[in-house]
């Protein structure tokens, strides 16, 4: 799995911003908040969250509305909205780059883009230093059944790959997961054809990729300079934030 790249706080006018690129997708995100809210959107006891997604080409369509609704409900759980009643937290995500489209069963699916959007949103929120209930990390997986002819394909024979062009070509189902830092399932979106066991199999693998090994190792014990195989998303997120903090504290030394 290719290591994702991130740049933080590179937009001067926004309260928080981030660029994230992974698997051919590049997304720029900007967070403004808490700012004044329009009267009709105002909530008396919490901050309203607005998510705008702009596609790489053309204007937003129903596909972007759908992704916005997933992000909105996820972020409402993550941001401590009760701390800013009657305000607005606005998140804008601009898709900059997507892999070249090609014919595959999931060409029209909005899901392959979702992990990049979720990760960008997380980084932008961290860059804006908004109070959060937890962080999360997201991963997209493609499942390929060995052969549709076989009636009972064994679990071990099923290939699980991160979503990229090669994986999508032979995938029978695609899955997007997001886990909080505690390993709770936050988002699960899947499509294609799969049995419940396969979903659980993908869940285990995704948890491993996001949080690390399943044995519930305490977070502090993780080695930052681990082997590439040990790398997981939350570790990566932490290293990005550490880099940012170090850079900002440079004046002190």
């Amino acid at each position: 799995m290719a290591v994702p790249e991130a740049t933080l706080s590179h937009l001067n006018r926004a309260d928080g911003s981030a660029t994230y690129s992974s698997n051919g997708y590049t997304v720029v995100g900007a967070v403004n908040g808490p700012i004044e809210v329009q009267r009709r959107d105002e909530l008396p006891e919490e901050a309203a969250i607005e998510v705008n997604i702009r596609p790489a080409v053309g204007v937003g369509s129903t596909k972007e509305r759908y992704l916005e609704s997933i992000l909105q409900s996820t972020l409402r759980r993550i941001i401590l909205t009760h701390t800013f009643p009657r305000t607005l937290i606005q998140l804008t995500l601009q898709v900059v780059n997507t892999p070249a489209p090609f014919d595959c069963p999931f060409t029209s699916s909005p899901l392959p883009l979702l992990p990049a959007l979720l990760e960008t949103a997380m980084l932008a929120l961290l860059s804006a230093s908004l109070p959060l209930a937890s962080t999360y990390t997201s991963v997209g997986l493609a499942l390929a059944m060995p052969s549709p002819v076989k009636k009972k394909a064994s679990l071990s024979a099923t290939a699980i790959m991160p979503i990229d062009d090669k994986a999508l070509e032979q995938a029978s189902s695609i899955h997007v997961f997001a886990f909080t830092a505690d390993g709770d399932l936050l988002v699960a979106e899947s499509e294609g054809l799969f049995a419940p066991e396969y979903w659980e199999h993908a869940y285990d693998r995704a948890l491993e990729l996001c949080i690390g090994s399943k044995d519930g190792r305490a977070e502090g014990e993780m080695v930052v300079e681990g082997e590439p195989e040990d790398r997981n998303e939350s570790q990566w997120l932490r290293s990005v934030m550490q880099e940012k903090a170090e850079q900002e504290q440079r004046w002190k030394t």
Binding site: R77, V187, A188
Partner: peptide, 8 residues
């Protein structure tokens, strides 16, 4: 299963 959507 043909689809799972869970969020929030």
């Amino acid at each position: 299963l043909r689809r799972i959507e869970k969020s929030g």
